[in-house]
Design a protein around this nucleic acid. Structure first.
Length: 172
DNA sequence: TCATTGATTTCA
DNA sequence: GAAATCAATGAT
């Protein structure tokens, strides 16, 4: 096992988002145990990025994004779906990588549902938590980049930033 | 394509 | 306190 160290998560969100696809999220206790390969991510650059929740200012919900990289940011949208993000960058820099997809699951809402994640994982530290962490399996998949989804409200130039990263080959 | 859904945020 | 918002999904 090779848990990703904190240093990795202290990079900027775009760099982390590029490297995460192909790695495994390992769920131990507290959720549905298993390995979940990340297949799709999106980068959110906090204060610079109008598409990021934190760009509007620090609130109770977004304050997790201001922690240093390696923490989970779990939040609820549309009354149905939990979204899973990994905070990146140093303390005080609200960046995060949204996990849009993992192997065997389709959309972002399904990720957390399938893994059994709930709000108790908000603020979880991936570098020290005994129940969830990320492993690098050494798999370097081909990646496709594209604009992010569901952020039209952010306006240009954010809507067209190629900050979405997806494994080229269809995994199932 | 459209209705549903509920935590969070914002306004009075 | 009450209303509007929203990084989506599933049914139609």
């Amino acid at each position: 096992m090779s848990r990703i160290i904190r240093e990795f998560f202290l990079s900027d969100a775009v760099s982390v988002a590029r490297l995460l696809p192909g790695m495994d999220i390992v769920m131990a206790d507290g959720g549905i145990p298993g390995h979940y390969m990340i297949t799709e991510t999106e980068a959110y650059l906090g204060d610079n990025d109008k598409a990021c929740h934190a760009s509007k200012g620090r609130t109770k919900r977004t304050e997790v994004m201001y922690l240093e990289g390696g923490h989970l940011y779990i939040y609820f949208v549309y009354g149905m779906h939990w979204m899973m993000n990994i905070v990146t960058g140093p303390m005080g820099s609200p960046q995060a990588v949204l996990i849009r997809g993992v192997a065997s699951y389709c959309g972002p809402g399904r990720v957390t549902k399938g893994m059994g994640i709930d709000r108790s994982f908000n603020g979880e530290d991936l570098t020290t938590s005994p129940r969830v962490w990320v492993e690098d399996k050494g798999y370097k998949p081909g990646l496709t980049t594209g604009p992010r989804i569901g952020i039209n409200y952010a306006g240009e130039p954010w809507v067209s930033k190629p900050w979405r990263f997806k494994i080229t080959e269809k995994q199932l």
